[in-house]
């Protein structure tokens, strides 16, 4: 066996000819993945077009313009939410090294529910905090962002970066928030409760364009802020020992990524309501379609799956059930069935 290249004097490692990049090696499976991603992107575009144009009265220009002015913001909200939730779920699963977890387990949904209930409970459903969607978005985002950042950074430090502990505490916090919320509901005026209930269900309509722009900027900022950590995700997947062996500052990377996950979920939830359960479905669909560890592919795949699921769900909710059944019903039912399928038939494998 010729071992000349493998053996190198201890001082020689700096002397490699650098710079000559080669075309990345792609396995047959990876080539198929690129094809699948393109195919998925085309489907998403078709569904987007359907969403904008179905029953849009293209023969009546004024009506057509009005319909579009309503649908384009909703479409933007769906796309942003899908990207935030899909990306956050994939990252979260890769950190925990388990594909049946979702960022839901951190208790962000119950936190959102609690914040909304508390607002209505304290200042009433007629107050500007509850009625103006800009203000209520700001309140949600600030409260959830700060609370989550503080709680989870603290938990990470306290538990010595033990992700499973944080997950366990998140589950406990989730019931804790839930109990406080149900206590408030019990003593609440029934009319107030009625108004409250509509905001506790995920909804893609009636989001202000300021909110959309702000969310978009925030998510873009997060991606830029975490660009280095995102590139390390593939290595993080190998587990702590291997990541450290390969020279990655594991604890810091995971802490920053978790912060990104929490903030992404906060943005998406503040924008449309408690919907992060969707992440479980779309992340797994992406992993099933793209049998790879490459996170650039997985995140894109999950985002596209999310867009497909949400927009298709919205189409059905809008045109088949004429808004009688909210989209979150589909998500919860579909997600529940898919979750059972994963547990029963996939045995946690991929």
């Amino acid at each position: 066996m010729d071992s000349g290249i493998l053996t190198r004097p201890a001082t020689g490692s700096a002397g490699i000819a650098r710079g000559e990049r080669v075309k990345p090696y792609r396995t047959p499976a990876q080539k198929a993945n690129v094809r699948n991603l393109i195919f998925l992107a085309v489907i998403v575009m078709v569904v987007c077009a359907c969403y904008l144009l179905v029953n849009a009265y293209p023969d009546k220009p004024q009506l057509f313009r009005y319909v579009l002015s309503l649908r384009i913001p909703t479409l933007a909200v769906m796309l942003i939410a899908a990207f935030a939730i899909g990306g956050a779920s994939i990252i979260f699963q890769s950190i925990i090294n388990n594909r049946i977890v979702t960022p839901c387990l951190l208790g962000m949904n119950s936190m959102y529910t609690l914040v909304h209930t508390a607002v209505v409970f304290v200042v009433g459903s007629g107050s500007i905090v509850a009625t103006n969607s800009n203000v209520s978005f700001a309140v949600d985002l600030v409260v959830m962002g700060i609370a989550a950042t503080f709680v989870y950074s603290y938990l990470f430090r306290k538990t010595g970066n033990n992700v499973l502990y944080v997950l366990l505490i998140g589950t406990v916090l989730s019931s804790f928030f839930g109990s406080i919320q149900s206590t408030m509901i019990r003593v609440m005026d029934p009319n107030e409760y009625d108004t409250l209930l509509t905001t506790l269900v995920a909804d893609f309509n009636n989001v202000n364009s300021e909110v959309i722009l702000f969310s978009l900027l925030l998510i873009a900022a997060l991606v830029i802020f975490l660009r280095k950590e995102l590139q390390l995700l593939d290595v993080i997947t190998l587990g702590k020992d291997q990541a450290v062996n390969l020279g990655v500052d594991y604890d810091r990377t995971v802490r920053r990524l978790m912060l990104g996950v929490v903030l992404c979920i906060a943005v998406a939830t503040a924008m449309v309501g408690p919907i992060s359960f969707l992440g479980l479905i779309i992340a797994n669909l992406a992993r099933q379609l793209l049998r790879t560890h490459k996170h650039s592919h997985l995140i894109l795949g999950a985002a596209l799956m999310g867009m497909l699921a949400i927009i298709a769900g919205q189409l059905i909710s809008q045109h088949v059930f004429s808004y009688a059944v909210p989209i979150s019903t589909f998500i919860t039912i579909g997600g529940g069935i898919y979750f059972l399928y994963l547990l029963l038939f996939k045995k946690g494998g991929i």
Binding site: S13, I16, A17, R18, G19, E20, R21, V22, P24, Y25, T27, A29, S94, N97, N98, R99, Q231, D234, V235, T237, L238, G239, D241, Q242, L246, G247, R287, R291, T292, H293, I350
Partner: peptide, 27 residues
């Protein structure tokens, strides 16, 4: 402790050995 839950081929795993040198872009 080498329990990888992700879909990773042998070649991709071996390629991780080059991570300290070139990151994820191989020369």
């Amino acid at each position: 402790h080498n329990n990888v839950q992700m879909k990773l081929t042998v070649r991709e795993l071996v390629a991780f050995g080059r991570f300290p040198y070139s990151g994820s872009r191989l020369t």
